[in-house]
Amino acid sequence: MSTNEWPLWEVFIRSKQGLNHKHVGSLRAPDATLALENARDVYTRRSEGISIWVVESVQIHATDIDEAASFFEPSDTKIYRHPTFYEVPDGVKHM
């Protein structure tokens, strides 16, 4: 069995209607059906969820941590994207 580990799955749970699925952890399972059942037993023993997604970990593509500074740089320099950048007289209401 040691050369034949089950694939790793990432588990996402929607805790209630109206909220996003959120990453809660991972587990190993031979297929998606068992991954969902295991996720239920491992991550929702106390009514933590109403919907579960499982995604094989190898299917996830992520940004490179070493490139993070340059990758996210464009959004750090554009302070005019925030409402606080603009001056409005004190008397102006509902804005």
């Binding site: 069995m1 034949n4 089950w6 031979p30 297929d31 068992l34």
Partner: peptide
């Protein structure tokens, strides 16, 4: 059990 689950998958 683990082998059977793998085979079934």
């Amino acid at each position: 059990v683990r082998e059977a689950a793998t085979a079934f998958a």
